[in-house]
Every structure is written in structure tokens, then in C-alpha cells.
Nucleic acid binder design. Structure first.
Lengths: 251, 251
DNA sequence: TTCGAATTATGAACCTGATTCAAAAAATGA
DNA sequence: TCATTTTTTGAATCAGGTTCATAATTCGAA
């Protein structure tokens, strides 16, 4: 069945083309402006062909998020493999999230959008599953770091499973970014979006978990140096994974 | 100008009618199903009349969120006035958030939706401002609790402003709920949505902030009792504020 | 190489639902 | 009572996602 294999390859390539172009258009004009017919035309295909790949516009958006999820997972895996203290790995994941949002602001907005009832429910079940399947190794990875820290005696288990414990820093990271992302909110508060502040908060949580070594968050010099270092390491991995895949609008 | 006053009153009443009915329909059928023409008809008005109040469908959704925000603020104010330790007030706010989501699951989903680029950008500027204006007293309230705790010597300021510090528990609370709300995610992880877990995480953070009195999160009995107590207090306030305004689908 | 069957691509037509606006109705106040 | 202004109405318009009859292409057997 070498013929079918070739067809499958071509089909997959075309799907990537659609996704690439969609990502480009979204980064340029926003999610709102993405239209199916123009997208198809931009790829030099008919509208109907697009629908051979995606059951609906929402399905296409989920497909984009699923693809980003794969990249994120690979980045996270490399971070987990870094030769740094376990506690710093958690910070490094936050740094990665931070950088990803900096380089691909439209991805972050898209992600926020697709998990919305309206979009999620309009995508195909298989595409939804794809995203959820991505999240499983992701959570395994994070809880793996927590597990390792517990085993190394750096972190008491508080009688929780590693997975349960790992939810806390994850939630804090997501929550911080969400608040910041919410248009105009920080401005309304009279706050500036200082990413160092986010890392301080994370350290407060990790301190509360008694995750060794504790860090004094008033020690700005140490904190800054630490984040600088992590940023550099993560950025290296980041560019190694996707050297050119940069959000054109915001970089 | 007593005539104009009357007209204004009637206009405001009609707007509330539209919002009430919209909330009802959304709670019953989901955001996706809400349609402008049927909504107008259900209120015994023409479609065009709806557009005298809301510049677009998205604008109507923001209006709903703005109204919910007012209720939330009043509830939070009452919680802040409770005669309980400052630290517990933060927990009580989380409990309130929790209860609100339990009683009005569709509100939470709606809120997630409106802060999305696609919806936010399609609403009128004035409506967006309304929501942001709500958030200002809300943040003042939360940071006021933090401030009071600092002044009482229960919480070191870590050389941050009260407002900056208050972002941490807020972000954790939002983040936890967001993760839980994300359809199928916890199921994919093999986690159950144990709200006690969320409170444990919050205590970890508050402990990390060295917010006295610290709580040993392995002491489930104390934690359970504390949350029970807060739940009862908040529920009382909650029902006092909106005794019948219950989400029909999920209660 | 040729041909009929099977698969795939096409894009104009269709359909849903938000929005508009010319006409009708109601309110105002002289 | 009536001319004027304000408000309401809902059918028409419009946008854009989706479908599907038709055309084009690919395939493999003869």
C-alpha cells in the first residue's frame, strides 16, 4: 500500500500548510478575522477542501492548539531533563510559559478561546481528545518533578500525591498569566505587569510547600539572577525547537 | 424633567428584563444557543429594540458579566466585614467564588467567554469600561484585607505593596478554578475535583507568605471544619443577596 | 496505453443568524 | 386636536460558515 502511504503523507502535509497559514493569519489579523474561504484561497485550495481536514472552523482552532501543545510538551521535556535543582525546574516551566506568551501572544489568546464552551463544543470529539491526550504526559512530567523532589527529601509530601501537589504551582502559573492577559485589568488596578512579581509569588508558594532550598523573596538580587539564568537556558531550548516560528505581530 | 426620569426608569427596567431573560436562556440552553431574535421575542419586544440597549450580541454578554460583577462585589464587601481573622477572609473569598460557581455554573462559563479577544473586542467600549470599573473596588477590597493583616502584624510585607501581594492568592484561586473548569482535563489526569484540595493549596500559599496563624495542611479535621464554617457563613450572605437567582440547570 | 470506476477537489449555492433601517406607531406638548 | 419628535417594529439585508452536485483526477485492470 505504498500509494496510500504517499497519499496520507500529502494529506498530512496539506493539513500542516492549512495550520501554518491559519496561524500566520491569526497572528497578523486576530482570531476574529480568520475566515474559512480566504484561508483556503490563501493556501490555493477550495473551501470544501478545508472541510476535508476540519469539521468546522472551531475544529481548526483546536487543531492549532493541539499542535502547539506538542511543541510545549517537547520543550517541557527538555526542561525537566536540565541539570538544575528540582525546585528550579518548576520555575523554569513558568519561564517557558512566559517566553511562549512573549513570542506567540496569539497562541495564548487562542488557547484561552478554544477552552471556551462555545468553541470546545463545536469541535470534533477526536480533536478534543487529541488535546486532552497531550495534557496527560504534560501532567505526568510536572508531577514527575514533584515526585523526584519528594524522593530526594527536598519536599514533604504533605500526605498528598505528587500529582495533587503539582496542581498548585500549575494553577498559580496559569492564574497569574490569565489575570495579566485579561485586557485592561492590571491597568485598572494601577499595577504594572512585572514578571518578576509572578516569580516572587511562585516562590512564596514553593516556600509554603517547604520545597528546599527556600528562597527569601525580598532578596531581589538572587531572584533576578536566578530568573535571568533560567530564561537564558530556556530560551536556548526554545529557539532550538522552533527557530523561526515567531509570531510576526508582536516580536 | 420628570417625564425623562420616568422614561429612563422604564428603559432601565427593560434592560434588566432583557438581561434576566438572557441569563435564564443561557442557563437553560448554553451560551451558544442564545439568539437575539428569540430573546427579543421572549421579552415581547422587537429585535431592533434589543439593539437600543446593546450594540451587539457580545455587548449584551458583557452587560451580563458586569451585572454579576456588581453582585460579586457586594458579597465580597460583606465577607470583608465579617468578624473573622484576616487570613480566613481570604479563604472565605475563595469559598464565595466556589459557591458562585456551584450555583451559577453558566455565569462562570460566560465570564471565561467574554474575556476572550473575540468577544471583548466586539463589545462597546463603555461596556468594557463598566467591567473594568467593577474590578477596581474589588481589588481594593482584597488588598485592603492584606493591608489590614500587615498592619496587624500577622503578615510580613515582603517589601511588596499590599496590592501586589494580594495578586498571589487571587491568581491561585482563579487558576485553580480555570483548570477545574477546563472540560475533561482533570478527568484526563485521573484527578477528582476535590475542592478541599484547592483550599489546601491556598493554605500552602498563605503559609508561604507567613500569614499567621499558619495551618498544617495535613490536619484535615481542622481544615474541613474551617471550610465548613466559612461555607456556612458565606452561604448565608449569598442567599441573603440573591435568594432566588439560581441557575436552573445545575442546582 | 486506455478506459471505466472510485476517489478527491471545486466553488457557487445554501443557510443560519446577527444587524439595519424605512415605515409605522406612540408620546409629547403647544 | 394636531404637528412634531421619539420610539418601536420586523422584514430585508448582509456576512460568513457549511454543503453538495458537478468536474477533475487518480487508480488499477485489461
Amino acid at each position: 500500500m505504498t500509494v496510500n502511504e504517499r497519499k496520507e503523507r500529502q494529506r498530512a502535509a496539506r493539513e500542516q500548510l492549512f495550520l501554518d497559514k491559519a496561524a500566520e493569519l491569526i497572528a497578523r489579523d486576530g482570531i476574529l478575522q480568520l475566515q474559512m474561504a480566504p484561508l483556503a484561497k490563501a493556501c490555493e485550495y477550495a473551501t470544501g477542501t478545508l472541510y476535508q481536514h476540519f469539521s468546522s472552523k472551531e475544529d481548526l482552532l483546536l487543531a492549532l492548539v493541539a499542535r502547539n501543545g506538542c511543541n510545549q510538551l517537547r520543550l517541557f521535556e527538555q526542561i525537566a531533563a536540565l541539570a538544575i535543582p528540582h525546585r528550579n525546574k518548576i520555575l523554569a516551566l513558568c519561564v517557558a510559559e512566559d517566553l511562549a506568551r512573549q513570542y506567540h501572544p496569539s497562541h495564548a489568546r487562542l488557547e484561552q478561546y478554544v477552552f471556551t464552551e462555545v468553541v470546545w463544543e463545536n469541535a470534533s470529539a477526536s480533536r478534543r481528545q487529541l488535546i486532552l491526550d497531550n495534557s496527560k504526559p504534560l501532567s505526568a512530567l510536572v508531577s514527575g518533578i514533584v515526585r523526584a523532589a519528594i524522593d530526594a527529601g527536598e519536599l514533604p509530601d504533605h500526605q498528598c500525591s505528587a500529582l495533587e501537589l503539582s496542581i498548585a504551582p500549575w494553577a498559580l502559573c496559569c492564574g497569574s498569566h490569565n489575570l495579566e492577559q485579561t485586557a485592561g485589568l492590571f491597568e485598572a488596578f494601577g499595577l504594572n505587569k512585572d514578571s518578576l512579581q509572578r516569580y516572587r509569588h511562585m516562590h512564596l508558594l514553593l516556600n509554603g510547600m517547604q520545597w528546599q532550598p527556600l528562597l527569601d523573596i525580598t532578596d531581589t538580587a538572587t531572584l533576578t539572577a536566578q530568573i535571568q539564568d533560567l530564561k537564558q537556558r530556556v530560551e536556548q531550548l526554545f529557539h532550538h525547537l522552533c527557530p523561526l516560528n515567531v509570531d510576526p505581530l508582536n516580536v
